[in-house]
Every structure is written in C-alpha cells, then in structure tokens.
Design a protein around this nucleic acid. Structure first.
Lengths: 349, 349
DNA sequence: CTTTGGCACTCGATTCTACCGAGTGCCAAC
DNA sequence: GTTGGCACTCGGTAGAATCGAGTGCCAAAG
C-alpha cells in the first residue's frame, strides 16, 4: 500500500505493510527456534511474497531503524526489544486452545478454600498452562474496613490481636505488656477496641484513651501495632508458581540466578507488577520495566478487579522471546475468571 | 593403629586410620575443587604421610569397598554417597566464623514481628550464611488447643470463622449459609462456638446441636469446616530461602529444574524434612532420602523445639559435595537460636 | 525505480588431528 | 609393607581444515 513512501524513514515507528510482515516473520520464527533467522526462511514464510534478496534489503532498513539486530556479520537477524514491542503491539489477540479453556473453567468451577488458597492454586494453574513462571498479586487492604478486632490472651503478658477486614483478610499481631493482665482486663480491652475500630480503615486516626490503667494501656498498645502495619507492607500478597520453569526457559546460569534472585524478593515482584500496570502496559519487554537483572525477560500482566475496584493482577515472566500470543491469552483468560470468581456469587473471603 | 587388620575387608564399614585420612582428604579436596582428585594431591595433604603410590593402592581398596569412584580410567577419584556418609559421620563438628556467629546473634536480637515473619527471615538468614537454599519448617498445630473462635459476618450469607490457637496461630475459614443470617444469629453462634470449642484441639470430637434453626446450622457448618482442616495439611508452614542458590550450586539445567520443581511443592519439602528427621539423621546424602530427583543433593536438617516439644526444623539443601562442616554448623547454630528465641522470654505469637 | 537471481565473501560452528599431561596400574627394589 | 620408576590411558585443549548458512553487492530483468 504505502509503498511509495517506503523510503521515508517514519519516525512515528509505523512500518509499511511489507516491512511489518517481514518483521513479524522474523520475530515469529525466532520465538520458536531461538536462532537468528535468515532471509530465505523469511521469504518462504506466509505473508511474505518477495524474494530473499528483497527481504535482505528490507532487513538492513529494519536493522537501521532498530527493530532487528545482527549477532555478527553474516548471521541472521534477531529481534531487538523494539522489534518485540512492535510485534506485540500489532498482535491480533489469540485465543487459547479449547482444551486449555476447558481446563481453566474446570479449575474455577472446582476451587475451594480461602482466597489465599485460590490465588496460590491459580498461580500454579497459570504456570502449567504456559510453561512460564507466574505471579499472582493481591493488593493490600489499605481501604478495607475493620469488621472485628479481638484481643486474645496467650499468657499474662502476651496477647494476640486478631483483626478481620471487610475484604476477608485476617491479620494478627502480638501485643506484649510489661504487666500481668487479667483475663477480665483483656476482654474489656477487646470490647473497647472493637467499639473503637469498627468500620475504620488502617488509615483512620482514632482517639485512644490516655489513662494509664491496664485496659487503656492494652488498647493503646494494640492500636499502635495495628496501625504500624501500614507503612511496612501494604498487605499485598504474592504467589509465585512454576519457578522451575525459569531453569528451562532461560539459558545461562547467570540469568537463571538473577531471575530467581528477583523472584525471591516478593516486595520487588509486587512493585514490578504494579509499575507495569501503572504504565498502562500489559507487556513489559526487556528494559521497559527498568529492572536491569530482568533485561532479558518479558513480563505480562493482567489486572484483576473486584467490584470494579483494582484488586490485584496476574503475571507471567518469560524470556523476551516468549510465546506472547499464548501467554497473553492465558493471562487474560485467567484474570477474567478470577475477576468473575471474586466478583460473583461465590465466597468472598 | 589397627594396621595389621587392614587386609581384612571390614563389613561394618569402619576404616583403618590411613584409609580414613585418605578418604577424608579426597572428600575435602573434591568438595572445594569439584574435580576428581588424584593420588599426588592426597599424598601431599596434611594427615597423609605416605607416598602417592601407597595412596593409589589404598584408593583401589576404597573404590572396591564403595567409598570412591572413578569417572573413567586414569582420572582421579570422586567420593560416592557412601564416601560422603563416612566423611560426615566422622566430621569433628566445626564452628562458625565469629563474624557469622555475631551476625546470627545480631539477627535474633533484633528480629521483630510474628512467628511467620521471624521464620521467613530466618530462612533468608540461613541461606545467606551458607549460600545454599534453606528451608524452615514449622510443624502444624495438631495438638494446640483453641483459645478463641469467632464468627464474623461478612454479608448475610457469608461468615468468616476465625480461630486462635494456643501456639499463636490463627486460621480463618469462610462459612457460607443458604439462608440470610442476622447479626444477632451470627454473634449468638459465635458465642456458642466459643463455649463449645474452647480448650479443645482439632482432634477433639465435639457434640454439635442437631436443631435446624439458623444458629445451630451456623454452628454445625463452622465446626465442620474447622475440623476439615486437619486431613489436608497439618497446618505446617514452610519457608524457603535462597532458591536462587540452586542455580549457582548445581550444574546442569536439568538438575536445577528438578530441584526447583521439588522446592515448589511445599508439601513435599515438609515430608522430606520430616522423613529425614524421623530417620534420626541430620544429613541425608544422595539417595538416602529416597527422592530420586534429589539424588545429587544433600539435605541437612536440624530440629527446633519449643518447650521441649518438637516444633519444626531448619534445613539446608545443597549438592552432595556441599561444605558440610560449615553448613552443619550454621544449621545447628540457627536452630539453637530459634529454639531459644521461641522457648524464651520473647513473644510467643 | 523496484525486484530478483547470481556470486563472492564472511565467520561461527563443527569436525579432525595431534598432543599434552594428570593420573593410573604394575613391578621391581628397598 | 612401602616406595620410586615407568609404560599406558584417556579426557581436554589447541589448531587447522572444512562446512554452510547467511550476507552484501551488482547487474539484469521487469
């Protein structure tokens, strides 16, 4: 079509149809062979109607424009991050095999248990579906309200503060006092804490009694440990599935080590996923996410919401040459199922 | 010493002093070079006062007896699992560097938070100390008694059952009813549940009301989900630290994959550690633990107890040629600190 | 002016060979 | 029983030769 313009280097990054199909062919082939791809195989691929020679000359352009790279003279071409980016941006969204679709429906029809269990199992599911490492992130309860708090006496000087939130999460904190508290004092404190904190969020500032008696001290102590929760973690949880796939999917011990090292740090994974989501991306390729150790990785994310509110995300981590179509489809389908699962009729907690 | 008997093949597996020191030298050298070790380097090592020729002839014996193996003719010797076993059985227990000792004390002096957090951080500590993957297992609350149960209403048909145990653990279960329960009904059920279950364990059979009103139904339902907890998992928790070390410490993608695959399955890790503990071992080498995919691994375990009761264990996973002395020392020291930490004055929960 | 087949050239990968040397097993001497 | 000496083995490495996939360029064809 816009052939006449082919000579003009298009700064907007859009390619004419022929370059596009060549780039696509290169990416597609490199994804499944992991080898540099040469002009002949591109020329023979569907959607490319020109001779190897023409392909070659187009490839030098694509290389100059940064979509392809040559490992060394007289080798085939390999896509750059930019090349992959173009590829995924122009990917007509694929669809999962019906066997897999079935597997997912089956899974969500049969899962039981608490949210945490469901999320954990979901991450396993996702990694099995794709053969990549999966991440399932549940955002924190920063704006969940407190449904109940209870102070339970462990022994005279140790109590356990158990708080239940409207999102179904439960957290415990241990409270230590430097005096012996009677059972009566503890349950009185528990009663008052309940009255005090009911329907508040962790961000609400509450008026604590300033008296110095045992009950008041327990209350102050309890409120303080509870509110201390906030700054450290936001209560996000992350479930990682199929980390063993890291070993099959990356080559080079060093890469494997680095990637595993990142996955070990849950906080990092949460922020990574969050960052990508915030950028409005669904795929971050190579250096796009800014984590140097993951520069040979691509990360796919798909948001999950509950009642219209963003509530987390599912993610996949693979090499930049991952099978985007399948992986995107899987992440999408699973995130939709999750959204439906938690939005819908079933147990919320 | 028992030199005169050297010719007699000792079926009990005890070696005369010279063979022992040769075997030890081979193992020690192979551990830090990862190479087959030859007669000359053994002969030059401390504790071995004989010539290479003598070493060689002893080595053929050691090989025949199954302590050493030869990768191929005219290569050095490599220890077999049996060789490593002898080595660790006769290891005079080492001691950690004082810098490390300090690091551990420091850690336990400063660590805060709930048990889970402490255990998780402990596993990180242990893996940092040793450069191996660490496992920290906390046994289940099968004989902990219930301190409190509370049924919290989420919405009309969903309640959350929150149970607090004497070991400081808290578990939640969601309860779904097929009728709309009022707040009053829920709190009445909660009250009765408390009375019913207080001081029982998950194994105690309790008499539930057989009435068909809402409160009784809630109670039956709650008791049932709570007691259903038992069979699936015993409530063990496992924290794995430093899985990225797997990639540095094993060679061969396939091994790395297999090991990571095992580590992914928490249940497997728990039983692995438990099995080894049950066998009364502190190290399981190669095939001793019976997990085929881990046949090139050694696993070190050290029990942790609270108030004299076994309460879990710490473990390390490395290659069969791991640095046993250091790793054993680290696991030992950390398990002791952990035992002291939870047995002692500090927070129990 | 674009496309194409032809062709010389490049350069990593593979294969082959020679060779080195660590290490062994054996034996005769101590 | 221990030791030095010696012939032999065999994996690992280095270098040379070769292969071949793939390129860049050019001249002819459309």
């Amino acid at each position: 079509m816009a052939r006449r313009n082919a000579k003009i280097i298009d700064p907007s990054g859009d390619l004419d149809a022929r370059k596009a199909s060549i780039l696509e062919a290169v990416v597609a082939e490199h994804i499944d062979t992991a080898q540099p791809v040469g002009s002949t195989s591109v020329a023979h691929s569907r959607d490319v109607k020109v001779s190897p020679a023409t392909v070659r000359s187009e490839m030098v352009t694509l290389e100059r424009e940064g979509y392809l790279a040559q490992p060394h003279t007289s080798a085939g071409r390999v896509p750059t991050d930019k090349g992959y980016r173009y590829f995924v941006d122009h990917l007509k969204s694929g669809v999962m095999s019906s066997a897999q679709q079935h597997q997912v429906s089956e899974f969500f029809a049969n899962v039981r248990g608490e949210v945490e269990d469901v999320l954990e199992q979901t991450s396993t599911l996702l990694s099995h579906l794709t053969n990549y490492t999966s991440m399932v992130v549940a955002s924190g309860h920063s704006h969940a309200t407190i449904l109940s708090v209870q102070l339970v006496s462990m022994d005279a000087r140790h109590q356990l503060l158990v708080s239940v939130f409207s999102d179904g999460s439960v957290i415990k904190h241990s409270v230590t006092s430097d005096f012996d508290a009677t059972h009566e004092e503890v349950s009185e404190a528990s009663r008052q804490l309940n009255a005090l904190l009911l329907a508040t969020t962790l961000e609400t500032r509450v008026q604590v009694p300033s008296r110095t008696d045992h009950v008041a001290t327990l209350i102050r102590e309890s409120v303080s440990v509870l509110h201390a929760e906030k700054p450290t973690t936001d209560g996000e949880q992350v479930f990682i599935g199929g980390s063993s796939h890291v070993a099959e999917v990356f080559d080079g011990v060093e890469t494997v080590r680095k990637v595993l090292g990142i996955l070990e740090q849950e906080l990092l994974v949460v922020t990574l996923v969050q960052d990508i989501l915030d950028q409005g991306l669904s795929v971050a390729i190579g250096s796009e996410h800014g984590y140097e150790p993951l520069s040979s990785c691509a990360v796919i994310v798909a948001p999950v919401s509950i009642d219209g509110e963003p509530a987390g995300a599912v993610g996949l981590l693979g090499p930049t040459r991952m099978k985007y179509r399948e992986a995107l489809a899987a992440a999408g389908v699973v995130s939709q199922h999750l959204t439906r699962h938690f939005g819908g009729e079933d147990d919320l907690a």
